[in-house]
């Protein structure tokens, strides 16, 4: 397709072809020429973008989707107890309070760099992580420095997995407690505000001294 015909398409798009007969002829060309049609599409899109009219995909109505989804879900009216104690089913607890917006637990550990290895082997914190540790033969890289750390009584794969799991639980627990602590502070703040209605509007510094 020549520059000339590009120009024609462009002019056609902008309604800049004055002569009616010429316009008709160019329209004929356009209809018979796929390349010209593509050019038309591109120009039209470019025009819209430049005029800031391109269809924005932003306002996806998420609330409707949430509402619809929730409507389908079974009713949950039981109150969840903070399950620290023995009654908890481990499987459920494991999922409880998974920090949603957050810190995905795994993520926290995923990008770890082992800085200090004092006596024993470092623990490989995340299954999906490609470990750099010489204790695991599957890893691609194995820094030489770690080899010197190795001892004969190196832990088995199962032990390593167990240790990883435990580390995750520590991180999980930490995040759970943070959320509960956030709630406790809020409740504390609110009860204080109820006692002193005059300051109810004030945004108090939230964190200090709540035991």
């Amino acid at each position: 397709m020549t520059d000339r015909s590009h120009e024609q398409v462009s002019a056609l798009l902008d309604n800049a072809v004055a002569d009616a007969r010429e316009r008709e002829q160019q329209l004929d060309n356009l209809l018979s020429d796929t390349e010209a049609q593509q050019a038309w599409g591109r120009y039209a899109l470019m025009g819209r973008i430049m005029k800031d009219e391109a269809a924005t995909r932003m306002p996806v109505d998420i609330s409707a989707a949430v509402a619809a989804q929730l409507a389908q879900e079974p009713q949950q009216d039981k109150v969840v107890q903070g399950r620290f104690g023995a009654r908890a089913v481990p499987q459920m607890l494991q999922r409880w309070l998974r920090p949603a917006g957050s810190v995905a637990i795994a993520a926290g550990v995923a990008l770890v760099a082992v800085l200090t290895v004092q006596q024993s082997q470092p623990v490989m914190p995340e299954e999906s992580m490609e470990p750099a540790f010489a204790t695991t033969p599957i890893g691609g890289r194995s820094p030489v420095s770690y080899n010197t750390v190795l001892q004969s009584n190196e832990p088995t794969q199962a032990e390593l997995a167990q240790q990883r799991r435990l580390l995750q639980f520590y991180l999980l627990d930490h995040n759970n407690q943070l959320q509960l602590s956030l709630q406790a502070q809020q409740l504390n703040e609110q009860s204080q505000n109820q006692q002193q209605p005059a300051t109810a509007e004030e945004q108090e510094p939230r964190l200090p001294n709540d035991n």
Partner: peptide
């Protein structure tokens, strides 16, 4: 507990 001595630095260190 039986974890070895270890330290991991990241967004959440342990």
């Amino acid at each position: 507990q039986s974890l070895p001595e270890l330290g991991i630095q990241g967004p959440e260190s342990i």
